[in-house]
Simulated assay, not measured.
Amino acid sequence: MPIENCIAHWYDNDIRFDLMTRYLKPCAGEKIFELIEPVEDTKGNNGEPGKLIVTNLRIIWQSQKYPKINLSIGYNPITSISIKSATSKLRGMTESLHILAKTKSSRYEFIFTNLVVDHNRLFPVVLGVHRAYIQSKPYREIKMRSAMIVSNKKLQMLQQEQICEQISGVWNLSSDQGNLGSFFITNVRVVWFAAANELFNASIPFLQIAEIKVRDSKFGKALVIETTEFGGNYILGFRIDPKEKLQSVYKSLLSIHDTYMAYPEFGVEFNPDTIDAEIEQERKDRLHKAITEEVEEIDENPELASDAFAAYFADGYTGESQNLPRRQIVYSEELGLAIEKPKDGFTLQQLWEVIPSY
């Protein structure tokens, strides 16, 4: 199946450089909210105009002159968005969008400058969409023991969510004796909660469901929901009596899951034409904070400004600790000197290139 017709779990969960064009196209359920150009990648390609695409899952920047030079920044790794002063080769000293992001082992910094004078949509659009992404996590993430059930055993509904079916008498088989509860099946997730304790619950988005099946267990026939690797590789078992009811719920879940996978809903809602005063005030507050507080800087080396990793990667930072040993010292026959061993996958020639080779 073509990549643009698949749900790509990494789109919002990863940071990738210099992707092939087909990976810049929207996946199923991905919506483009805004296209802004020209925008300079001031951190990695200072002086190079490009286009910046804001979707419901990520930010994409692509060079106008060299389309193979591009960025895909998922919203999930982003740790902060602010506005700071930056020196652009095309606009001089100006305020720019500053993004810090962290993956499992690395930290990155991105700076984008809108090259259209007196045009500030870049700031409120990115801020607004990222905020909408953070607020819509139940669409995409498995939640356990959260306050999703309100009084009178009603489900706290998400925007764009509709209840398809409510089923009582559902046993959760996570313990030896099982726990009796109920199902809410909606158009975006399956929610189970215990009858005796509503805080004992689970919300499982269809996005994270890898397989739904019926199989034997020590409790008899059970409905089994297996989640994806991104969803934690959980195997969740439920017993529903009688068997006819079990089969009915099983078929309903399969049908709704298939529909969801064909037309996924990620829950990120944003209308770029209605940027309100609240978002504008947030922009001003962030700008004031960036000016009045010290911001941790990541050294820039203009000689490496076009190298994808050297420009954005904060070397020496992995995981949660920065107290790490220096890399191994090796002898370089090319230079006739002792140097730190380059990171795996890199050569000295690549580190010295101004424009990467393809």
Rank of each mutant, 00 (worst) to 15 (best):
A195D: 15
F230D: 00
Q156M: 13
W61R: 02
I204E: 00
S105F: 09
L122R: 00
K153P: 06
I279F: 02
E333F: 01
Q177V: 11
V116T: 14
S82C: 01
V354H: 10
V191H: 12
N114D: 10
V249F: 01
I256C: 03
D14I: 02
A222D: 10
Y263G: 01
E320A: 10
Q350E: 15
E109M: 10
K218H: 13
E334G: 04
C164I: 14
S105I: 05
L246Q: 11
E40R: 07
I59C: 06
E30N: 03
Y75L: 06
R91D: 05
I163H: 01
I59N: 07
V354T: 08
S63F: 04
I225K: 00
S151G: 12
T292M: 14
E303W: 02
L223Y: 04
T55P: 03
G128Y: 01
E269V: 15
D12T: 06
D14C: 08
M261D: 07
T42R: 06
N45M: 13
K251D: 14
M157C: 04
K102M: 12
A195R: 05
E30I: 00
L348W: 03
R283S: 07
R286I: 04
S255V: 12
Y234L: 15
Y66F: 06
Q322W: 05
I275P: 06
E226H: 03
Y75C: 02
C164M: 08
D216K: 15
G316D: 08
L254V: 12
L324A: 02
G47E: 04
D299I: 14
E353C: 00
T347E: 12
I81V: 08
A196M: 04
E303S: 00
I329F: 03
I163Q: 02
F346S: 11
L57V: 00
Q156G: 15
E278S: 14
I32V: 14
K154G: 10
Q322I: 09
D241P: 01
Y331K: 13
L97Y: 01
I36E: 08
W61F: 08
Y358F: 03
F238E: 07
E294D: 13
P205D: 07
P38M: 10
T103M: 00
L173I: 09
V150M: 14
A194D: 11
M148I: 15
M157R: 14
I99T: 07
H288S: 13
Y234W: 11
M157E: 07
G267C: 04
K341G: 00
D258V: 07
F184I: 10
Y260M: 12
E95S: 06
N5L: 11
K43T: 11
C164Y: 15
K251E: 15
L180Q: 09
L19V: 01
L348F: 09
